[in-house]
Nucleic acid binder design. Structure first.
Length: 104
DNA sequence: GTTGTGACGGGTC
DNA sequence: CGACCCGCCACAA
């Protein structure tokens, strides 16, 4: 089981209306390869099942996403999140409110 | 087999 | 504050 597999599984555990961060994911899989999480999401081998838009940076800010260049695509992700009940302000999410901590 | 780099985070300067 | 560096794992050239 590679870290990537764990990341996918954990990410799928995130309920609708909540988000997680690269840090938490990396932590929960027992690794500090935060970059791995980003890479895994970027490669996103299981796109339809891996809600990468539910993953944000530790500050609650949206990461790079966008696929080709971060910019407009991010706004679409934000809309998706808002549709799920997550409030996004200028690309920033209140982790205190919508952050789903696996450790809980 | 080796090297580089990436959707990041945290600590230091 | 902002810039810089290091760490970590996977994957492509």
């Amino acid at each position: 089981m590679s870290l990537a597999e764990k990341v996918y599984l954990k990410l799928r555990e995130v309920p609708r209306g909540k988000v997680t961060t690269y840090k938490w994911l990396a932590e929960v899989v027992g690794s500090k390869g935060y970059r791995l999480v980003g890479q895994i999401l970027k490669r996103n081998p299981d796109a339809p099942r891996t809600p990468c838009h539910r993953v944000v940076s530790s500050s609650g800010k949206i990461g790079g996403f966008g696929g080709e260049r971060s910019g407009k695509k991010i706004e679409e992700k934000i809309r998706m999140l808002e549709q799920e009940g997550v409030e996004v302000k200028k690309g920033v999410i209140d982790l205190e409110q919508y952050g789903f901590d696996f450790k809980e």
